[in-house]
């Protein structure tokens, strides 16, 4: 493995990419340390998939550049491909081949020695051994994701690019999937994983948030929450649904949402938020200020994006 830059697995600057007249990636810079699990967040169409495709050479950047695993993004794309495992957002294996046949095809394209052993190993590791002879098209969502992951891992890549790997998968399968990601990171693999799930974002070492093809914030979950400077209040009691509906339209309130038995409202200014709650009058609710959570912050950022676009 070439290891010129020991620190960074991904180090790209000022990436730009347009489709026709539309600029989709607009000066994106991104650094991911080796061995890190980096969560890639952002609304639909914010450019996550495009960025990942630029990183593995499936798209050519219009401008900017950098290195991936110490290899130049533009000049050494073929070599990068050998070291990267890319799991596409959409399941893209042959539905008319079995799990083992799909893996065999991938292994042979990478020119692995000991194809059979490599397949058995990865099947055992991902817990797919029992389904090796099932047609890929007949697998359920969760098993499809596992198979795609297995295919990415066959050639023992140094960097995994996972594009919404757990979309549409049940909670248990998601948890197990993430356990595997952590195992692999512990072995030194770098993982860039895009997701819309906040619980998954919280399991990343670091998250980056993308909007309009630009990086908006990055850091650990705590850092991102703090940087947003959001103020959050929580209320308990009866009638929180009605209160939420009224609060949403009041100035100073950015979000008001019911979670179980609690109502959470968030805004940028404490005074304005307090005034809004004040205007509700005596509703029989008990209010208290709480720590903002990552999902409050992201909904806040998604809203900001809608207003500016």
């Amino acid at each position: 493995m070439s290891a010129a830059a020991p620190g960074l697995a991904i180090d790209v600057h000022d990436l730009r990419k347009s489709f026709g007249a539309r600029r989709v990636i607009d000066g994106l810079s991104l650094q991911v340390a080796r061995g890190e699990i980096c969560g890639f967040l952002g609304g639909n169409g914010s450019g996550k998939t495009t960025t990942i495709r630029l990183l593995c050479g499936l798209l050519r950047a219009d401008g900017g550049g950098g290195t991936c695993l110490g290899l130049d993004l533009l000049r050494e794309a073929p070599r990068i491909r050998l070291l990267v495992g890319y799991m596409t957002q959409r399941f893209s294996f042959y539905t008319d081949l079995t799990v083992a046949e799909n893996l065999e095809f991938v292994a042979r394209l990478y020119g692995l020695s000991g194809v059979r052993r490599a397949i058995e190993e990865v099947l055992a590791r991902i817990g797919l051994a029992g389904r090796r002879d099932q047609l890929a098209g007949e697998l359920s969502g969760g098993w499809k994701q596992r198979m795609a992951l297995a295919a990415c891992l066959l050639h023992r890549p140094a960097l995994l690019l996972l594009d919404e790997p757990t979309a549409g998968v049940d909670a248990k399968a998601r948890r197990e999937f993430w356990d595997m990601i952590h195992e692999m990171a512990a072995e030194g693999m770098t993982v860039l994983v895009s997701t819309h799930y906040m619980d998954e974002a919280e399991r990343c070492h670091r998250v980056v948030y993308l909007a309009g093809g630009r990086l908006v914030v990055q850091g650990t979950a705590d850092e991102v929450v703090r940087a947003a400077r959001l103020v959050t209040f929580e209320a308990n009691g009866t009638g929180i649904e009605q209160a939420a509906a009224r609060l949403r339209h009041l100035p100073g309130v950015e979000t008001a949402a019911v979670f179980g038995r609690a109502l959470r409202v968030a805004g940028m200014e404490r005074a304005a938020l307090a005034a809004a709650i004040e205007r509700l009058g005596d509703s029989g609710l008990t209010w208290q200020e709480v720590e903002p959570r990552l999902d409050d912050v992201f909904i806040h950022m998604l809203q900001g994006q809608e207003e500016t676009s």
Binding site: L58, Y86, Y110
Partner: peptide, 8 residues
Amino acid sequence: MENLLAMP
């Protein structure tokens, strides 16, 4: 095809 192109 996307998978194929991403492979060597």
